[in-house]
């Protein structure tokens, strides 16, 4: 399951970079994250609740940030397991500044096991798109606040 695209945020690269490295913001912006506890370095213990309408699943796992090149790029990794199976996702974010705005180019890859993979297949694509959209929208709101 792969996603890619770009999103333009109305702020400088510096500002966006700071946001992305703030665990509080990350916890707020990443859809479904209920709790984020630092485990040291850029790794956090996470409780993730993914819900689409009546379909809900709770996953326990880790969120980590890797391959950081300040102001340029980072990789966001999410790994978790729960009743409906496991999720392992990586998303690479590349930042570019243009006229005071920051264009974030993202490519993501998610591996999903268990029930969701085999039953939810027809919805996973749409839901992933939806969640990526929510993530950036939340970042945008964060910038406004």
């Amino acid at each position: 399951m792969k996603v890619e695209g770009t999103y333009t945020l109305p702020a400088s690269r510096q500002k966006v970079w700071e946001l992305l490295n703030d665990p509080k913001v990350l916890a707020k912006a990443t859809p479904g994250i209920k709790q984020l506890d630092p485990l040291g370095g850029d790794t956090y213990k996470a409780t993730i609740e993914v819900g689409v309408g009546p379909v809900k699943g709770t996953y326990a796992g880790q969120v980590s940030i890797a391959d950081k090149v300040p102001l340029e790029r980072m990789t966001l990794k999410v790994e978790g397991g729960g009743k409906p199976g496991t999720i392992r996702a990586t998303g690479e974010l590349r930042l570019e500044e243009q006229d005071g705005k920051t264009i974030v180019a993202y490519t993501g890859d998610a591996h999903i096991t268990g029930l969701i993979a085999s039953v939810g297949h027809r919805l996973i694509g749409g839901v992933t798109k939806q969640m990526v959209g929510e993530f950036f929208k939340a970042l945008e709101n964060e910038l406004k606040s």
Partner: peptide, 9 residues
Amino acid sequence: LMKLRLASP
């Protein structure tokens, strides 16, 4: 959805 426990109202 309930039988698969994807939804558990």
